[in-house]
Design a protein around this nucleic acid. Sequence first.
DNA 1: GGATTAACCGGAGGGGCCTCCGGTTATTGC
DNA 2: GCAATAACCGGAGGCCCCTCCGGTTAATCC
Lengths: 210, 210
Amino acid sequence: MSIQKPEAADEADEAGASPRPLRADARRNRDKLTAAAAKAFARSGVDASLEAIAREAGVGTGTLYRHFPTREALIEAVYRREVEGLVAAADDLLRQETPDAALAEWMQRYVDYIATKRGMRDSLKLLLESNSPLFAETHGLVPRTFRRLMEQAVQSGTIRPDADSADVLHALSSIYSATDGPDWHERSRRLVALIMDGLRYGAPRPSQRR
Amino acid sequence: MSIQKPEAADEADEAGASPRPLRADARRNRDKLTAAAAKAFARSGVDASLEAIAREAGVGTGTLYRHFPTREALIEAVYRREVEGLVAAADDLLRQETPDAALAEWMQRYVDYIATKRGMRDSLKLLLESNSPLFAETHGLVPRTFRRLMEQAVQSGTIRPDADSADVLHALSSIYSATDGPDWHERSRRLVALIMDGLRYGAPRPSQRR
DNA sequence: GGATTAACCGGAGGGGCCTCCGGTTATTGC
DNA sequence: GCAATAACCGGAGGCCCCTCCGGTTAATCC
């Protein structure tokens, strides 16, 4: 359920062959900053005050600017963090739940993630047109993760085997465009459940619950 | 030579059927602001400090923002002012000089104008893509003015009659891209003179000077 | 020529961005 | 362990953006 903090091995290959692995306090502050930024961006969009983010993270503005020289750098870091969190969550869920429950839960998380990003839309587009290698790294990751989840569920026999993961992912993404009212979260849950039921329909070995 | 300030009639049709013709002091401050902004934009690009512009114009920042709610509004006003100045200069020159001298002088002014605008390039592009009616109004004005100048010179017999005004204008515009070094102004004068000589070549009635 | 008033003026004030540097601390080498 | 030091931290300070409102003034009506 909970997203574990990445162990040392992760950060090593994350930065390739960096000269230094980043001092412990620096690493800590960096994490606090991306966490605070994620919250602030979700709350008030990508134009959120950087000073407020630094304040919420409990560090000075100098520290923020040292780690992220531009607003775009911070946005990119937040985006990457979220994607990595999403990928890591899949493993956690598979470890702790039945495959179809894991799939259902992850789908909801994915929709939440997309919805959170609606404020970042244009900034991400800017980033995409710039030089950043961000998308090359992360682009295929989410679809691959989702496919893995679906395959596990298929093998356990709790969902039908004839659904295309890309199609389902697309359907989930389109839920995002229906997230306007005050009760969008409830609505999104229902939509996700609907899709999940569609996947369960005609499965060889229906799961007990529901 | 000097560009006269527009008389009352001008400002009336400039704003269409505006309810009020703008109070005298407001009008004065508006002019001071666009003048200061033109200088500042030419000096430091369109990112020039708006506070500095207000200071240079001798007014408070509040006045600046009342007249021009956004930076773009100010840029647009400056642009329009320059275009109008260019058009008015043609009449002045025709009144005070021989047609070919007027043409030569105006061509130089046009190049100066283009060069000044190099900093505004992208902002103007943004403006163009927005809703502004600015370009519909001004777009054809400069070419038309230039054609008029050339026709006058042709009729006086001091330049050849077989040159296309659009071609010449294009040539002048392209001088802009050769304005990099510290002596670009000198160079541009020589290039303009060269083009002018090309126009004089084979004219039925060569002018005395030169 | 006054009185009235709508329009205009200026600048203080609150907030944000980013840089710079003296002080602090984790890490390394012994 | 301990010293040396490279790396990091924080926030003051300078500049800018934009809003808001009490005071001022040009225009209008008698």
